[in-house]
């Protein structure tokens, strides 16, 4: 049993570290591996900062546990110790975690503000969640799209104004470092400033049977490509309905 527990512990520790330090390369759009916005970088930093501050406590606690299990097995002739308090020790293990947590707390203070308040906005997009699809409206261009990828220019502060017309949904694209519940009847705001790429996300608040299929796709493209896309959408809007199919396919070909 001794060896078993050691191997188990080591295995778990390795799994924990590898899992959290992004040891699984792949093409997943993952906030920890591929943060796509300054905010996501900061969130990643905050994650590791917190993790590295608390990991020693994890290892101390689990290490002591394993040591005790191995060392203090009942043996004939050895009397159990008699102590049952130690004020100094008790103060130490109250203060040490408390101080560590102060560091964690202070480190998140500024980021909480930045994640909630959009800086000077370059472009606004309205997001309307409806079971089980997303509608995006670009007020600047008068474009409305539904069940299509959100297309935005790279390196611009995009402010999303989100709401829902039925139940609570949550707009979440992991690589952007944001997630925001969209409540019916209420307008809320979130923002991102992303680098080029195609990003995946999904609704993150149970909204009904097809919640799992309420997926989000975002294409972050260059300014020129974006302008091109806007032109296309405007043309599509003014053109008769039968050409819609055509333009959609060319639109998605361009973004993929």
């Amino acid at each position: 049993m001794k060896t078993k527990s050691i191997f188990l512990f080591l295995g778990l520790a390795a799994l924990f570290l590898s899992g959290c330090s992004g040891g699984h390369p792949g093409d997943i759009t993952n906030w920890l591996q591929n943060p796509a916005t300054p905010l996501a970088h900061e969130v990643r930093h905050s994650f590791y900062f917190t993790l590295y501050l608390i990991l020693p406590f994890l290892f101390i606690a689990e290490g002591l546990l394993i040591y005790v299990i191995l060392r203090f097995r009942k043996k004939p002739g050895r009397e159990p110790a008699k102590f049952h308090d130690n004020p100094k020790l008790e103060i130490a293990w109250t203060i040490a975690p408390a101080i560590t947590l102060v560091f964690v707390a202070v480190s998140t203070y500024g980021l909480i503000g930045r994640i909630n308040y959009s800086p000077e906005s370059d472009m606004q997009v309205e997001v309307t969640a409806q079971r089980f699809l997303w509608k995006y409206h670009y007020p600047e261009y008068g474009i409305t799209i539904s069940e299509q990828p959100l297309v935005v220019p790279e390196d611009k502060v995009i402010t999303l104004l989100g709401t829902s017309v039925d139940v609570i949904h949550s707009w979440w694209v992991p690589a952007f470092g944001i997630k925001r519940d969209l409540l019916p009847g209420r307008i809320v705001e979130t923002w991102f400033k992303a680098v080029k790429g195609n990003y995946k996300g999904q609704c993150a608040e149970l909204c009904g049977p097809l919640h799992a299929e309420m997926l989000i796709d975002v294409s972050v493209v260059s300014q020129e490509e974006f302008e091109q896309w806007v032109k296309q959408k405007l043309a599509e809007k003014n053109a008769p309905a039968d050409s819609t199919n055509n333009l959609q396919t060319s639109g998605s070909a361009e973004t993929k």
């Binding site: 917190t50 992991p174 997630k179 993150a204």
Partner: peptide, 16 residues
């Protein structure tokens, strides 16, 4: 739990 108490990290991992 401590990672989840960190608000920006919670934004990422809540409801996951």
């Amino acid at each position: 739990g401590i990672l989840l108490a960190n608000v920006p990290v919670d934004y990422q991992v809540t409801d996951t």
